[in-house]
Structure formats: structure tokens, C-alpha cells
Write a protein that binds this DNA or RNA. Structure first.
Lengths: 234, 234
DNA sequence: CGAGTCTTTGAGGGGAGTCAATTCGTGTGG
DNA sequence: CCACACGAATTGACTCCCCTCAAAGACTCG
């Protein structure tokens, strides 16, 4: 099942960072503070409705993006109508940097999402004056590469290990310690981990049965035994 | 089964490009001729024995490498002693660029291999004088990223599709049209595609039975129906 | 020729996919 | 406020693809 590509990005020129008060936005942003300031000043805040397309596979890569609130998924479609979700981006995360000329993936808003959109030309101009920015942009790109390699390792593992890895990943990125809030539906998780929604569901139940997690609701999961989960993925 | 990390790189300071007469070396090199010349002049030709370690995971990334003859595999080890082969590099290919500070993978010589090794500082100096080099190095890195994404898509497919994809990939990279020469053993192929050697063997036989390929020997495979194979991976 | 490695082939089992039915959750309208 | 609708999520039964374990061939090199 593919998400509907209802392209209805509603643009607002006012910089309304009010709902960017999520903890993860602050922590992730903190790591790359140096480039935040200049890029943020140049960017424009755009609002995307749930399911809206931010950019499509093959489109020219004119902008770089930063999630302010909400969540974004990048994906690629296979011939057999299967979908691979490459990555989820949470508040504070940059995306769209890995592209040189045209986007290798499509990007959609998982929920109603606010995104800081900055023209690449502006970035390029800035890097001429400040050479250190190039280095930092490269680092973000390399972080992406590292993640891709981790994901490759992941896809050779069992369903239980994939789910555990995903939960730990999400918990680390939102630094709410033991409580994971999943902004995306099961289908998105399945397409990210190379599983089916049924297997995702069953595996979560299995982990809950062993007492390592607690399913507060379908989208809210408490990590009870972090050490056991960590040992599983190690 | 892990390959023995018999680190015995024998260095020769003479630039002996004699056995670099393979067709693929020339074609791949042609694509990036502009950076070949300067880098080649700065580099040093090093010989590695079959199975020798070129660099290890976590080691500082001081050099960039280019295969002159032979073949190289980069790999990562999982806790459960499983091995993921990230990529094979054939004559003309660059590797070791994606690393910023430390190598995310290990690199081994599949066969007796000659590699052009160039210090990163030298490259860095060069990029100061010629800005276009940065762009070209970025492009090589982005090509790596693209390949990683393709590999992720691959790992959600069936064994037959993975094998077909691998054969097509190898045939394209060696531009010997229909004849694929596999420099690596089955175990390496299996670890690259996330399969077992038995499944690799069985799937190859299956493809031969349908008449899409012909197994001239275990390492030499003729692609009979390119269109059918292409349709399989599409 | 024999030792070792690589590759093939076979039999059996398990983990995840497929198909189908039910339950849960949310929003809408009477 | 309840009834209903619709999608999301869960649960169950069954199937199949690939892995595991085991043994036999094929190839290389001393």
C-alpha cells in the first residue's frame, strides 16, 4: 500500500517556531549549532499536510531541508510496487543533502509537518566565505552514509532484532529515555525494516510477552529492559 | 567463515602498470580522467597478497585507494560473527573516500591486487588549487551512496533477483557484455547479497536451468538472456 | 597422488510472508 | 450521547522460501 501523494504544501512566510518545543528538536540541533544559525536565517518555513509530497524521486535537488516539527519519511518505489522507506527524519534533522543533482528518493510528510527550506545556492555562497561549513555538510552526508550501512547490516537480521534496533534508534533520537512515541503507522515501520505489518505487530507482542517492552498504545511504547534490547542488537 | 586477515602488503615503489591491461580498468578510468592524472602522479603503487588487509574498521582514514589490478572487498563484521560485504572494487574503482575520520569498513584484497594509494593530505592540497576536484570527489562519494541505497532495496528481494542483480552489475562494470568473470569465491558473494553459499549455488543452477545463464565454470558465467535477467530486477 | 579448499547437492526445519477475519481507534453524523 | 463508518492494528491458519546440517564432488597446488 502506497501513501497518497496529495501534494498540498501550504506555505507560510512567517517564522513561527512556537511548536518547535519538542525535546528532540533541541538536542539534535545542539550538535550542529554552528551551521544552524546561518542556514536558519536564510531558510523559509513551509508547512506540509500529512501525506504531502515534499519532493519526488528524480526531481532536481534545489533545496536542503530541516524538520522543525512533525516527521518526514524518504522512500523509493520498486517495480513490484514494494516501497522501501530509507529514513525517518525527526525535528532537528536535516535531509536532502545527499543529493547532488537530482533526488535519489521521494520525501513525504508523515504527519502535519513544518520544514525549514533553504536554497542550495544560498548554502553554496555561504560555503565560499566559510570553508568550515563544507566540512560540516560533508559530516552530515557521511552520517547518512553510516546510517545506510547500518541499515544494510540490519536487513540481514531477524525480525526481532530489527524491531529492537528500530525502537532503540527512535528512543535515542528523541532522548525521552524509555518512552518511544512512534509518529508513523505500522506500514511505514514495516517498509523501513523490510518486514510486513503483521510481522511488526507480532514481533512487538513477542517483545512485550518477554517483558522487554510495554505497549501503552499502538503508537506509544515503553522500553522496559534497555539492556536486553541493546544486547539483542549489539 | 571469515577470511584470514593475513596482513602482508608487499610494497613496490616502481610504477609497474603492465598488468593493468584489463578492459574495465580503461573504461572506468575514462569516466573520471580529469582527477586520474594528478592523483595517479601523487600516488604510490602497493601490492597486496590474496586475503591481505588493506585497512581495518575503525582505523584512521589517511589514504584514498584506487584498484589497478585484482579485486578488493570492503566488509563489516556483526557481533554474531556474520560478515556483510559492502562492496567489491574492480580495476579503475576508487574506494576509501566515504570515510571522514576513521574507516567505517575493513578492506581486503580478494586476489593478488595492485592498488594506487594516495595520501589524503595530498588530495586536500590539490583541492585548494583546483576547486572542481572537490566536486568530483563528492560525485564519487555520492555514487557510493546511490549504491548503498540500491543494495538496501536488493536485500528485500528474493534470492533469484539478488543473484540476477549481482551478475548484471558485474557484467556492466567489466563491460565484457555477456561474459562475467567472478574474481571472488561463493562465500564473498553470499555475504554481499545476504544469502548463504548453498543458496547462491542453487540459485545459479536454477537460472542455468531456465536457460538465462550458462555456467562455463564456477567463476565464469555467461549471461544468455540479458533481457530476461534485466526484467527480473527492473 | 593426496591434502586442502571451494563448490555442489540433498534432506529437513523454521521464520517470515500471505490470506483472511476480527478488534481497536478515531472521527462523523444523526 | 450513541451509532455508524472507515482505516489501522491485531490475531490466526497455512504456505513457502531460505537457512541449517550433512555429505559428496570438483579444483588447485604441493
Amino acid at each position: 500500500m502506497l501513501a497518497k501523494a496529495k501534494a498540498s504544501p501550504e506555505r507560510c512566510s512567517v517564522n513561527c517556531f512556537d511548536d518547535c518545543s519538542l525535546p528532540q528538536a533541541q538536542t539534535v540541533a545542539r550538535k550542529s549549532r554552528e551551521i544552524d544559525e546561518p542556514i536558519a536565517r536564510m531558510g523559509r518555513l513551509v508547512h506540509y499536510r500529512r501525506g504531502a509530497e515534499i519532493f519526488g524521486e528524480g526531481q532536481p535537488a534545489e533545496y536542503i531541508y530541516r524538520v522543525v516539527s512533525g516527521a518526514v519519511r524518504t522512500s523509493r518505489i520498486l517495480n513490484n510496487s514494494r516501497r522501501q522507506i530509507c529514513q525517518f527524519y525527526l525535528p532537528g534533522d536535516y535531509f536532502g543533502l545527499e543529493a547532488q543533482n537530482e533526488q535519489p528518493t521521494s520525501a513525504f510528510a508523515v504527519n502535519d509537518t513544518q520544514i525549514l527550506v533553504t536554497n542550495r545556492h544560498m548554502i553554496a555562497k555561504l560555503t565560499y566565505r566559510r570553508r568550515d561549513l563544507t566540512q560540516q555538510l560533508m559530516e552530515i552526508a557521511n552520517k547518512e552514509t553510516k546510517h545506510l550501512q547500518d541499515q544494510i547490516l540490519l536487513l540481514t537480521k531477524t525480525a526481532e532484532e530489527r524491531i529492537a534496533w528500530f525502537l532503540l534508534q527512535m528512543s535515542q533520537r528523541t532522548d525521552s529515555a524509555n518512552l518511544v512515541n512512534l509518529p508513523m503507522p505500522r506500514q511505514d515501520i514495516a517498509d523501513h525494516l523490510g518486514l510486513t505489518i503483521e510481522t511488526v505487530s507480532r514481533t512487538l507482542k513477542q517483545l512485550a510477552r518477554t517483558g522487554w517492552i510495554k505497549q501503552l498504545s499502538s503508537r506509544r511504547i515503553q522500553l522496559v529492559k534497555l539492556d536486553a534490547l541493546t544486547r539483542l542488537v549489539s
